[in-house]
Amino acid sequence: MKSFTYERATSPADAAAAAARTEGAKFIAGGTNLLDLMKLEIETPTHLIDVNGLGLDKIEATDDGGVRIGALVRNTDLASDPRVRKDYGLLSRALLAGASGQLRNKATTAGNLLQRTRCPYFYDTNQPCNKRQPGSGCSAIGGFSRQHAVVGVSDACIAAHPSDMAIAMRVLDAVVETVKPDQSTRGIAMADFHRLPGDTPHIETALEPGEIITAVTLPPPIGGKHVYRKVRDRASYAFALVSVAAVIQPDGTGRVGLGGVAHKPWRVESAEADLPRGARAVTAKLLDGAKPTDENAFKVTLAERTLAGILEEAKG
């Protein structure tokens, strides 16, 4: 691990200002992904700003009937919150499908959104990777690509976003609240928060330098049956090959998002009108233009079949 300086921030505004002031600074909260990458010297911050003391650890009701989830709420606490379990079951289910008990106790809501991809070539510093070293090439294209993205990919990167929680947040129309170094605040819709790789796969989110997440808000509950189904190589503690997050209403309408298939939580709102027609019609639109590799073409079929299973379950 490269040497770095360390400070404990006392307010979100101070943290953002400190990050803007110090070249190479990064925030650290749970640290479960950042420290992993620092040990491999894939992340090499010169300065760490510890944000654990900022107190952003509450889940509160909002005036419009939704909830506001503090950036530092741990994954375990969010998944266990009685209101989230009752009204946003999709979010609890997605969180509980990810990582391990130990990691969920430490990982935060904001950190989950900011975790880096687990593409093995991103992790292998002996291999070219446009995300780790812009312009060096993509080893996954033409390499081992079974885990990789099938839609929204580019010639520069085919990595898949690993988060389960983020898929649920996308389907539930979450908004990411931030503070910038100039002290201004904004809300970023989940649809716009993560980016497709394009020719800049090293830039993964809409956050500006120094901008810090303070909370994630959810609109009022939408009812319906909440299902998160994750298909993976092990029964527990593994990344998704494909995951499907769905909210299905009694009349068969609803929302659906996919994990494990793209560089960001994947949702195509226009495809959802076809939910009453069944999984094939929805998946055809969701994965329209998909460019899978020989090794991961199975994900297209797997996504359709997983959604079909969910629609069957929702009837029961």
Partner: peptide, 22 residues
């Protein structure tokens, strides 16, 4: 790297991976 759990300890009553925290 937080994958095996051999380093699990309790911090303020919760189990965590002690290898993935400073």
């Amino acid at each position: 790297h937080g994958q095996c759990g051999a380093c699990t300890v309790m911090v303020d009553g919760r189990r965590i991976n002690s290898c993935l925290t400073l």
